[in-house]
């Protein structure tokens, strides 16, 4: 005679405890980030070699982003002695905007600030002006390309210019489907400064 079968039941409580702990860990540890994309800046393979087919200067479109030094507009007589600095944006000879040099300071100072902070608001205002200027520049560039002039762009960017401008400039070139974009040559190698140490804070 076979013994009566006993119904076996596993205790699920420890497993559910573990599963909940795992769930809580993932919920707390998860950080959702804004998705990133990229702008392709592939360097030419033949860099450093002489160009056998030089481009005529008239064929080049010149976008300049540079630091303009001028007299200070500060009413304080002590500060008035000092010069003021601004970022300027030009496409060939046409001026598209002047932006305060302090935007880097404002952005760095706003890192621990809320969206209502003074520095944050100042930076956002300038950032909006920059975007508007580049929108106008893109429209101008598109109308020039439609009329069939110039297809090679040279980006003449001062070393101190923030990365924001470079991405906006590349964005404008991509919007106009310009494939031949050149960066102007580097003025000074940083490997020769500060004994080769990397100092991005200055």
């Amino acid at each position: 005679m076979t013994p009566k079968k006993k119904k076996t039941e596993g205790d699920m409580t420890p497993m559910i405890d573990c599963v909940f702990l795992l769930l809580i860990f993932f919920i707390i540890a998860a950080k959702f980030i804004t998705p990133e994309g990229h702008l392709d800046i592939w360097q030419p393979k033949d860099s450093g070699q002489s160009n056998s087919d030089p481009v005529e200067l008239e064929e080049l479109q010149d976008m300049r982003i540079y630091v303009r030094y001028g007299p200070s507009s500060d009413p304080d007589p002590v500060k008035k002695e000092k010069y003021s600095r601004d970022f300027e944006l030009h496409l060939d000879k046409k001026h598209f905007g002047t932006f305060p040099y302090q935007l880097r300071e404002w952005k760095l100072a706003s890192k621990n600030e809320k969206t209502t902070g003074v520095n944050f608001q100042k930076f956002k205002k300038v950032e909006k002006q920059i975007k508007e200027a580049f929108t106008a520049l893109t429209e101008e560039l598109q109308s020039q390309i439609k009329s069939g002039v110039k297809s090679t762009m040279v980006l003449n960017i001062d070393p101190e210019v923030p990365y924001l401008f470079v991405v906006e400039a590349m964005n404008a070139c991509t919007a106009c489907e310009l494939e031949d974009v050149k960066f102007s040559a580097q003025k000074q190698r940083l490997t020769k400064l500060h004994g080769g140490a990397i100092r991005t804070d200055r």
Partner: peptide, 9 residues
């Protein structure tokens, strides 16, 4: 956003 171009260069 505000890192200087010279470092990327």
């Amino acid at each position: 956003t505000v890192s200087q171009w010279k470092f990327t260069q």
